[in-house]
Lab assay of single mutants.
Amino acid sequence: MQIFVKTLTGKTITLEVEPSDTIENVKAKIQDKEGIPPDQQRSIFAGKQLEDGRTLSDYNIQKESTLHLVLR
């Protein structure tokens, strides 16, 4: 499925993911596309910070959902 990741600069990245993917996985995909190390990424969805060990389905993130990426 496709999800979108919006950065603070307003750029939107499209990722191909599975509901079973962990947040860690997703951060690795963002690193592949953007070169941002996962330890600098904070992902926010529906106002909640997403934890690395959880999966997209844990957070009820579905296709075409938009995550927000904040850098630390």
Rank of each mutant, 00 (worst) to 15 (best):
L15R: 00
T9C: 14
K63Y: 06
P37R: 10
L69F: 05
L8A: 12
L67S: 01
G47E: 07
T12E: 04
G53R: 08
V17Q: 00
Y59E: 02
R42F: 15
I3W: 02
R42I: 15
E64L: 12
G10T: 02
H68P: 00
V26S: 00
E16A: 08
K48L: 12
I3Q: 00
T14Y: 06
P38Y: 14
P19W: 06
Q49L: 15
Y59H: 02
M1R: 02
I30V: 08
I30H: 02
H68K: 07
R42M: 15
F4C: 03
K33Y: 11
L71E: 08
L71K: 08
Q2H: 12
Q2G: 04
N25C: 09
G47N: 07
Q31M: 13
S43W: 15
L15C: 02
L69P: 00
P19Q: 07
T22S: 07
Q2F: 14
G47A: 04
D32I: 13
L56M: 04
L67T: 00
Q49E: 15
F4L: 04
G35H: 07
I61A: 01
N60S: 07
E34H: 10
T12V: 14
P19H: 04
I61T: 01
P19L: 09
V70T: 08
D52A: 07
S43L: 15
L71Y: 11
I36V: 09
K33N: 07
T12Y: 10
F45K: 02
V5L: 05
L67M: 06
Q41E: 06
E51N: 05
E51K: 07
K29Y: 08
K63N: 15
Q2E: 08
E51T: 05
D52V: 05
L71V: 11
H68V: 13
I30Y: 03
D58L: 02
D58A: 04
G53T: 10
T12Q: 06
E18W: 12
N25P: 01
K11C: 07
S43A: 15
S43D: 07
P37S: 11
L56T: 01
I3R: 01
I13Y: 08
L71D: 06
R72P: 11
K33L: 14
K27D: 01
L50R: 00
K27L: 14
T66M: 08
V70M: 10
D39K: 09
K33P: 06
N25F: 12
D52E: 08
E18F: 14
I61R: 01
Q49K: 10
R72M: 13
K29N: 02
H68R: 08
D21C: 04
R54S: 06
L69Y: 03
K33D: 07
T14N: 05
S57E: 11
P37N: 09
F45P: 02
L69N: 02
T55K: 10
E51F: 07
I30Q: 00
E64T: 05
H68S: 06
K11G: 06
G47Y: 06
L50E: 02
I44D: 03
D32C: 10
K6I: 14
L8D: 11
T66C: 05
S43R: 05
T9Y: 14
T55A: 06
L15T: 00
M1F: 15
G53Y: 12
K48M: 13
P38W: 15
A46T: 04
V5A: 03
H68F: 14
S65W: 06
I3V: 05
F4E: 02
G53L: 08
I44S: 06
V70Q: 08
G47I: 04
E16C: 13
D52F: 03
E16D: 12
E34V: 15
K33R: 10
Q49C: 14
E64W: 14
K27F: 11
S20L: 08
I36M: 08
T9G: 13
T14Q: 08
D39S: 13
I30F: 06
K11F: 09
N60T: 04
P38A: 14
K48S: 09
G53N: 13
Q49I: 15
D58P: 00
M1W: 08
K6V: 14
S57W: 08
D21E: 09
S43Q: 14
G10E: 03
V26I: 12
Q49T: 14
R54F: 12
T12H: 06
S65K: 03
S20Y: 10
I30A: 06
A46E: 14
I36K: 06
K6G: 03
T7M: 15
L69S: 02
F45Y: 13
F45E: 02
L71P: 10
V17E: 00
V26D: 01
Q31L: 12
I23R: 01
S20M: 09
L50K: 01
M1S: 02
Q62C: 04
G35P: 05
R72L: 13
I13S: 00
L15V: 07
P38C: 09
D39V: 08
K6Y: 07
H68C: 09
L56I: 09
I61F: 02
G47K: 05
I61K: 01
T9H: 12
T9E: 11
I13C: 03
D58V: 03
D58E: 11
H68M: 13
L69Q: 04
R42S: 13
E51L: 11
D21K: 00
T66A: 03
K11Q: 08
T22I: 04
E64G: 15
L8G: 10
E51W: 05
L8Y: 13
T12D: 02
M1C: 04
D39L: 10
K33S: 11
Q49G: 06
S65V: 05
D52H: 05
Q49Y: 15
E24D: 08
N25V: 14
L71R: 09
L56A: 01
E51A: 07
Q40C: 13
K33V: 13
L69I: 09
G10N: 05
N25R: 14
T22W: 04
P38M: 15
E64S: 10
D58I: 03
D39W: 14
G47D: 08
K33T: 10
T14M: 12
T55Q: 06
K33A: 12
I30K: 05
G53I: 06
F45H: 06
N60G: 14
A28K: 15
I13M: 05
T7Q: 04
E64K: 08
Y59A: 03
K48N: 10
T12G: 02
T7N: 04
E34W: 15
L71T: 09
H68N: 06
G53S: 12
N25Y: 12
Q31V: 07
R72N: 11
D39H: 12
I36S: 06
D32K: 12
K48Q: 13
T22H: 02
H68I: 15
V26Y: 05
L8S: 14
E18D: 13
P38N: 09
S20G: 10
D39R: 10
I61W: 01
Y59S: 02
A28H: 12
D21N: 05
G10K: 03
E24N: 08
K29I: 06
S65F: 06
L50T: 03
T66E: 06
D58G: 03
Q40N: 10
L15G: 00
A28Y: 12
I36Y: 13
G53K: 11
P37K: 09
E16K: 09
D39Q: 10
R54N: 09
R54V: 06
G47L: 10
A28F: 12
A46D: 13
T9F: 13
K29S: 03
K29P: 01
L15E: 00
S57L: 11
I44Q: 05
T9L: 09
N60P: 01
I44Y: 15
I3T: 00
I13D: 00
K27V: 08
T22L: 08
Y59P: 02
K48A: 09
L50C: 03
G47Q: 05
K6W: 06
V70R: 09
L50S: 01
R42D: 13
L69D: 00
K63C: 04
I13E: 01
E18N: 13
V70L: 11
